[in-house]
């Protein structure tokens, strides 16, 4: 990905006639993103999901059902089978007679919270480690690059499971574990770009002016990396959401008393043959969220890296 060069090049200010509005690379990227219908639809889905998560207590009040209470009288049939979607329970109930709709909406809170917070932590760590490794080089780089390789190639789910099971599942623990196993992909890209950028003349100039390594890394190098980091971070969110759901599904995620999509799907596994809604709605919510983030990530990449498309076009023309 060579997003950086483009985003970094300053617009030739003053060259344009007065009548033409000078637009920054970010404004250009934004206008490309807005024209991308799939990306905008994904963004709307994500915003709706966030709104639903924020308004979860409102839905609980509206239906009169709490996410944890068991409505054994109304929520289960005489044979103890979950009740299907209807006026009383919008998306049906689960095996304990709890309201599946309210639980799904509360589950969105966990998924989004863990997904976004873990991504922020991983992005921060990845950027700092990648910058330090790429800028300093030598033994520092050797050690950090090896660490990146190890984290990238090790059976992280197994280690995550072991960590969670010995330390005990909790929201904070799950988030930290996911962040710990996610920073490496960002660090690798940042390191590679830093290695290339630090050879440029303006970095040499900054150094000869007496700028500290800290200043060079964060003021001179980092701005060039903002575009690829945004793309990677957007694509890291669905990965973190899947990670959290998988841990919860295995019973090693957040506290089982908190409704989360992974735990709901684990419970549904022995019931979906009598209650399809029990599987379909949490699975649908999870897929919709990860799909929306992935599509948005692709859209952001296309918007920030218009060159890839243009190169694409010339190659097509050159093809016999």
């Amino acid at each position: 990905m060579s997003v950086t060069d483009l985003a970094a090049e300053p617009m030739p200010a003053g060259l344009e006639p007065e009548s033409i509005e000078g637009r920054s690379p970010w404004r250009l990227a934004w206008s490309r993103l807005v024209r991308d219908r799939v990306a905008i639809a994904s963004l709307i889905v994500i915003l709706l999901m966030v709104a639903a998560a924020l308004a979860a207590p409102l839905f609980a009040a509206l239906t009169g059902h709490s996410p944890t209470d068991q409505y054994r009288e109304t929520g289960l049939t005489d044979q103890g089978i979950p009740v299907g979607p209807g006026a009383e329970f919008w998306l049906g109930t689960d095996s304990l007679g709890r309201d599946l709709f309210v639980r799904t909406v509360y589950g969105a809170r966990i998924s989004l919270l863990v997904g976004v917070v873990a991504t922020l932590l991983a992005t921060f760590a990845g950027v700092v480690i990648g910058l330090v490794a790429g800028y300093f080089g030598g033994i520092v780089d050797t050690i950090l690059a090896r660490a990146i390789d190890v984290v990238l190639s090790f059976p992280y789910l197994i280690f995550a499971m072991a960590l969670v099971s010995v330390i005990g599942p909790s929201l904070v623990m799950t988030t930290l574990v996911i962040a710990f196993f996610s920073w490496a992909s960002i660090a690798r890209i940042v390191r590679g770009q830093t290695l290339a950028i630090k050879e440029k003349e303006y970095i040499e100039a900054a150094r000869s002016l007496g700028a500290s390594p800290m200043r060079i890394m964060f003021v001179d190098v980092l701005p060039n990396l903002v575009a690829p980091v945004i793309v990677l971070a957007t694509l890291l969110v669905p990965t973190a959401i899947v990670f959290e759901a998988t841990l919860s599904w295995l019973g090693l995620g957040v506290d089982v008393r908190i409704p989360s999509w992974g735990a709901m799907l684990a419970e549904s596994q022995s019931f979906f043959r009598v209650a399809w809604w029990y599987l379909i709605f949490p699975a649908g919510a999870l897929l919709l969220t990860t799909l929306a983030f992935n599509l948005l990530g692709d859209g952001v990449r296309d918007a920030l890296d218009p060159r890839s498309e243009r190169l694409f076009a010339t190659r097509r023309k050159g093809k016999p």
Binding site: P238, G262, L265, Q269, F272, W276, I280, T290, L291, F293
Partner: peptide
Amino acid sequence: VVAGISMPTFVVGLMLLFVFNY
């Protein structure tokens, strides 16, 4: 490809069970 990348492995398994076994 986007749909495939978005699917958690365990959800794929559950959906296959749902379709083929139910």
